[in-house]
Simulated assay, not measured.
Amino acid sequence: MRKIFRKYVISLMSFSIALFSVTATANTLEKIREEGAITIGVANEVPYGYTTPDGEPAGEAPSIAVQILNNLGVGNVKVVVTEFGSLIPGLRAGRFDVIAAGMYITPKRCKQILFSNPTYSIGEGFLVKNGNPKKLNGYDNIKSQSVKLGVMSGSVEYGYARDFGIGMGKIVTLPDYPSGVAALKSGRIDALAGTSLTMASLSKKDNRVELAQPFTPLMIKGESIKGYGGFGFRPSDTALHGAFNSELKGFIDTESHLAMVEPYGFGKHTSPGGMTAEKLCQ
């Protein structure tokens, strides 16, 4: 009798958890539609996701997010700015509802959050002092010289450097890119790693640094490393994730999409092609 009762309690608990899970998946989508408002998270990284001096969303990801969310009936898109490494914890903690920071889709991150299909693909680059005095034109130069490479906390570049075989003593983790530029100019690091678009954007803001050119394409274990960025959602928000992805499918690579992202340096040359989050998460 005890065993039967115990099985009944366990079954009831499992049903309750499942019911709660199903309810939770619809809650965020229903809530934002009812309220007409949503909050997105960015890391203030130009040109991926940042805010204007007036606090308005700007960059590739926020611009697309506003369009897609408007299509879903949500007209008021608020923005929370946080460090890149705090985006996933902030999403899971409920500080915002969508990560709109151009975050690369990786298997490790896929274990923590849901990703939309990618909206762009891009390669890597270095920011160096003017004239590139140490001739740092790729990860192989970092590995072969006594130099320091700066990477942003929580970024894929940390993993790239490690997987490329660069010693941990050569890697300096920084909270954000402004800190990285400051570290570069002060001599604390010799190169700052990031996507080529971000590094090019940073170089335009300070005449003491430049984008390392030419740059040797990053290869790890015989594979070309190219990042694909998308939007992040809480694992329970399957309804919001599905609705967002559905709208995204009909928008990416259209004339409207390309006209929207071209001012940020994106375009046909950064098209994700037929790549999906499912493939990238494997």
Rank of each mutant, 00 (worst) to 15 (best):
K268S: 14
I38F: 06
G222F: 08
I105E: 03
A259D: 15
M103A: 13
V80T: 15
K7Y: 08
Y50D: 12
V9Y: 13
D54P: 01
Y177Q: 04
L192D: 06
G41R: 10
V181L: 01
A61N: 06
K3D: 11
A161F: 04
G73E: 12
S271W: 04
P272S: 09
N130K: 15
S256Q: 15
I64C: 03
E45R: 06
F251N: 10
A183I: 02
T276P: 04
N141Q: 15
K111F: 01
M275C: 02
I68D: 02
P214C: 10
I38L: 14
I142D: 08
K134R: 14
G250L: 03
G232P: 02
G194L: 00
K226Y: 00
V81Q: 13
A212K: 00
S146K: 13
K78F: 13
N137R: 13
L91D: 03
D97T: 10
S121G: 07
T216R: 12
P272T: 05
G167N: 14
G165Q: 10
L184C: 04
K268P: 02
A212T: 03
A37L: 05
G75A: 12
L192S: 01
I171Y: 06
S146G: 15
I64R: 03
I4A: 01
G180I: 05
R109L: 11
D54G: 12
G94I: 08
L211G: 02
K185G: 01
G55N: 11
L240V: 04
I225T: 05
T216Y: 03
P235K: 13
S236E: 12
E83H: 10
E34L: 04
E247Y: 14
K205S: 14
I166K: 10
G123I: 01
I40P: 01
N44R: 13
A182Q: 13
R92C: 09
M1E: 02
N132G: 11
H269C: 03
G150K: 07
C110I: 06
P175Q: 06
G250W: 07
T119S: 13
G267N: 14
E34R: 09
G59F: 02
F20K: 05
E278G: 15
E210V: 07
E60Q: 11
R162A: 15
E35L: 13
G242I: 02
S146P: 05
K7D: 07
A243H: 04
I171N: 08
R234D: 09
S246E: 14
G187I: 01
M260P: 08
Y50S: 07
G125Q: 04
E255L: 09
S246N: 11
L127V: 06
T195R: 00
T52Y: 10
G180M: 03
A65I: 10
P89N: 01
P272C: 04
G150S: 09
A61S: 15
G265K: 08
P217E: 03
Y120K: 01
A191Y: 02
L197C: 00
N27F: 10
D176S: 09
A58G: 08
T28M: 12
G187T: 04
Q112W: 00
L218E: 02
F126Q: 09
G159T: 13
T238S: 14
A101S: 15
L280A: 14
V98D: 05
Q112G: 00
S153K: 15
F96C: 11
L136V: 06
P133S: 10
G150R: 05
S21F: 07
K7Q: 10
